[in-house]
């Protein structure tokens, strides 16, 4: 077998997959802004993504904030900069860890669930049934999930930010012996609106990516349990990778100057 042909074929397959995804995203977005809308399904999805993901996102950011305070303290103590712990914690959480950890957690929880649900609907002909009942599956299944992802993640991240900073505060005040007032003052002192806003923009983009990949892989699921299983795995893996890539891109846009 010619290795160049193999590489070429793989590259063409990759381009075809990207093309399919871009078309799917374009059609989905167009249905997000055109009636009819399904508000009941949108609210159900917002509850599913936002409300039910709160415990897992809250725990993740809480312990991340605690670890961050501990690690930065032991690191900064080497050059007597312990006072920067509160600032490092709040900037790291709001700019990076809050949105990325929430995005990854939601990718695991919601991306997988969306892919499995829509994949099962594909395999059991429920999506075909929607079409025969004059209901556009993009409008009924995909658009509400994508909108719910974009709406829910920023709220989830905002709450995660508060919990993460609180985690740092607990460790800073009760374990490392910082004065509570001073710690809070240092937390607020160097925090700028752009730090929080950039995190929320990231959250909205990550919400879009998680929902898009969940719906895309579910919609294109292969036959049988194996097909649905593969769709679920692909949804989580691709959403996680895209979150990390998009994170770099958005960080560059906001802070490269």
């Amino acid at each position: 077998m010619n290795p160049l042909a193999t590489i070429g074929r793989a590259f063409l397959n990759f381009l075809a997959a990207v093309g399919r995804l871009v078309i799917f995203a374009g059609v989905s977005i167009s249905h997000c802004v055109r009636p009819p809308f399904y508000p009941r399904i949108l609210i159900k999805q917002i509850i599913e993504i936002g409300y039910y993901s709160l415990p897992v996102v809250g725990l993740t950011t809480l312990f991340s904030g605690m670890v961050l305070a501990l690690q930065s303290y032991t690191g900064f103590a080497r050059f007597s900069a312990e006072g920067a712990v509160a600032t490092v914690v709040v900037l790291s959480i709001t700019r990076e860890l809050g949105p990325v950890l929430a995005g990854l957690m939601v990718a695991g929880r919601i991306g997988a669930s969306m892919a499995a649900e829509i994949g099962t609907m594909r395999v059991t002909e429920q999506i075909d049934a929607l079409t025969t009942l004059s209901t556009n599956p993009y409008k009924y299944l995909v658009a509400p999930r994508i909108l719910a992802g974009i709406i829910s993640l920023p709220f989830l991240v905002l709450i995660g930010d508060i919990i993460g900073v609180f985690g740092g505060y607990i460790v800073g005040v009760y374990k490392l012996g910082f004065n509570a007032g001073t710690y809070l003052q240092r937390t607020i002192e160097f925090l700028e609106p752009i730090d929080v806003i950039s995190g929320l923009v990231k959250a909205a983009v990550f919400g879009f990516l998680v929902a898009l990949m969940g719906c895309y892989h579910g919609y294109r699921s292969g036959r049988g349990a194996q097909g649905v299983g593969a769709a679920t795995t692909n949804a989580v893996v691709s959403a996680s990778i895209l979150i990390l890539v998009a994170n770099y891109g958005i960080t560059t846009l906001f802070f490269s100057h």
Binding site: T124, A129, T131, T132
Partner: peptide, 15 residues
């Protein structure tokens, strides 16, 4: 399509 009705082999009811 609104003029067609299709009974699917496995029902295809919405779970």
């Amino acid at each position: 399509m609104a003029r067609f009705g299709l009974l699917f082999q496995n029902g295809a009811l919405f779970d």
